[in-house]
């Protein structure tokens, strides 16, 4: 699984150091060997922590998913118990056989995709608006980062309060100014809007929260990239008579393509895996249940770690499929 995942951005070689110590055809000098030994010593705790708490659990997850395991049986559980246990795909059959299974998978993909695209668009828009200096730009820039740095519990609670049907300020203003009837944004599955038709209300609100919370992340990166576009390109474009929108299309956007692609990938992965935002906003109710919530339900609500492990592997697999499609598509587009 690790081999097919994209390497994260900026994980290039360290400055100055050659990628590999000593070539095979030449015997490394004693000082070189001492250096390597010291390096391993320094890296050891980090490697150990990663191995025990990241690599091992992933492997272990596979064995758990193949066993029938209830929370009450955990007392007799051992890491190598699976060697004697009866293994099978019952857990996979159980979780995929749920009536809502495929709609949950679809919802997870839509949630990740919509949240990612919206947060990237908002971030791009903000970065373009803030690009040229104005009085107070530093302060506004700091303010724009607020949704991202605000503790998630606080952000979710403020949104729940603002949008509450009983005492939410949004409903109060909507009622006073536009005469709408109070809406339960996080509790109502769908709403009929004039012109638009039926809209999944709670699900859309959760996506809006996600876009709001993560647009600063896109904003920081796009803003930094914008500052690095050489000025003379714009000067040349102006001399050629390009309008502002033409400059965006032919100068700015091509410069941003790389950073946008990386941001899309990262945000998609993280949104796809998201548990906390939805759990805090709706608890997975009113048509917002995504795979992560379902995993938590199996683990805690139904005390069935085996099924939870199976579903978490399905989550990783679905993500991998979507990412492969995306990477292939990107590669093909870069070729043409």
């Amino acid at each position: 699984m690790t081999t097919t995942t994209q390497a994260p951005p900026g994980s290039g070689r360290p400055g100055g150091a050659t990628p590999r110590g000593g070539r095979r055809d030449r015997k490394p000098s004693p000082s070189r060997r001492r250096e390597a030994r010291f390096a391993y010593l320094l890296l050891l705790p980090a490697i150990l922590a990663t191995a025990v708490l990241v690599v091992l659990p992933v492997l272990w997850n596979v064995t758990i998913s193949l066993q029938s395991l209830r929370l009450i049986e955990l007392r007799n559980f051992t890491p190598f118990g699976f060697l004697q246990a009866e293994l099978g795909f019952d857990n996979f059959r159980l979780v995929t056989g749920q009536r809502e299974f495929w709609s949950t998978v679809g919802r997870t993909v839509v949630y990740a995709l919509a949240g990612t695209v919206l947060s990237l668009l908002l971030g791009l828009w903000a970065a373009l608006a803030m690009r040229r200096p104005f009085r107070g730009r530093t302060a506004v820039k700091a303010l724009l980062l607020v949704p991202y740095v605000l503790p998630v519990v606080a952000a979710a609670f403020v949104w729940r309060t603002m949008l509450s049907p009983q005492y939410g300020i949004v409903n109060a203003w909507g009622q006073d100014w536009f005469g709408w009837t109070r809406v339960d944004f996080f509790g109502q599955q769908s709403i009929d809007l004039p012109l638009v038709g039926t809209v999944p209300l709670a699900f859309s609100t959760v996506i809006a929260f996600e876009a709001w919370r993560y647009f600063p992340f896109a904003f920081i990166f796009i803003y930094a990239r914008l500052q690095a576009v050489p000025k003379h390109l714009y000067e040349a474009a102006t001399i050629d008579g390009a309008t502002i929108s033409q400059q965006f299309r032919h100068v700015t956007f091509p410069a941003l393509r790389g950073v946008l692609a990386v941001l899309f990938l990262l945000r998609f992965i993280w949104n796809f895996n998201d548990f906390t935002n939805i759990y805090l906003l709706t608890g997975g109710g009113a048509g917002t249940r995504v795979i992560s919530i379902e995993i938590y339900e199996w683990l805690i609500g139904r005390s069935n770690p085996g099924a939870a492990a199976a579903l978490s592997l399905i989550l990783a697999a679905v993500m991998l499929v979507v990412l492969t499609v995306y990477v292939r598509w990107q590669a093909r587009r870069d070729q043409t």
């Binding site: 994260p8 990241v54 272990w60 997850n61 758990i64 559980f77 992965i269 989550l315």
Partner: peptide, 19 residues
């Protein structure tokens, strides 16, 4: 180094919870 962040946290969460 950063590969860890590409995995769903729940993939670690279940076995760590069991352990």
């Amino acid at each position: 180094i950063l590969m860890v962040y590409l995995f769903p946290p729940l993939v670690f969460a279940v076995p760590l919870f069991v352990m």
